[in-house]
C-alpha cells in the first residue's frame, strides 16, 4: 500500500454512506535519543531557529495512527484546520471554516482500502483532528 492509495480517496461508513475524503494520514514518529550530527558547525544555532528545525532527535519507526477525513474535498489544505496558525489573515480563517468538521479515524477502524475508496469498520471512532 502507498500513501497515494489513501489520499483523496472517498470515505464510506460501514453502511456505505459517504462521509468525506481522506485529506491526510497521521503518523507517530518514534524519536530516539537526540544525537548531534554536526557539533562543529559554528552557525548551528543561527541555522536552526524554529523548534521544528532545531529538533535534532533522530527519528525511528513511523507508525500509522489513523486517517484524517474532511467532509469537504478539493483545495490544497495547508493544514490550517489542524494547527493554530492565524496569519496571514484571513487565509487560515477561511481554510479552517471550509474544512470545519475534519476528524481523525484510528487506523484500527479502517476496514478496507479499495481503488479510490476507503471503508470504515462498524463502530468506527471520530477523534479530534488537531495536531498536538
Amino acid at each position: 500500500m502507498i500513501l497515494g492509495d489513501l489520499l483523496d480517496a472517498r470515505v464510506r461508513g460501514p453502511g456505505g454512506e459517504h462521509l468525506g475524503t481522506v485529506v491526510d494520514v497521521r503518523l507517530a514518529l518514534e524519536t530516539l535519543r537526540g544525537d548531534d550530527p554536526s557539533p562543529d558547525d559554528p552557525d548551528r544555532e543561527a541555522r536552526a531557529l524554529s523548534a521544528q528545525v532545531r529538533r535534532r532527535d533522530r527519528v525511528g519507526r513511523a507508525r500509522v495512527v489513523g486517517i484524517l477525513v474532511s467532509p469537504r474535498s478539493g483545495a490544497p489544505l495547508l493544514g490550517y484546520e489542524r494547527t493554530g496558525v492565524t496569519a496571514p489573515w484571513p487565509v487560515p480563517q477561511l481554510v479552517r471554516r471550509r474544512h470545519r468538521g475534519t476528524f481523525l479515524v484510528p487506523w484500527e477502524d479502517v476496514a478496507a482500502v479499495g481503488p479510490g475508496e476507503v471503508r470504515l469498520a462498524a463502530g468506527y471512532r471520530q477523534e479530534d483532528a488537531a495536531l498536538p
Binding site: 503518523l27 507517530a28 518514534e30 524519536t31 535519543r33 513511523a62 493544514g79
Partner: peptide, 12 residues
C-alpha cells in the same frame, strides 16, 4: 530508545 513520540501528518 526510551524517547518520546512525535505526531506528524504525512501530507503536511
Amino acid at each position: 530508545s526510551g524517547a518520546g513520540v512525535r505526531v506528524v501528518d504525512a501530507r503536511l
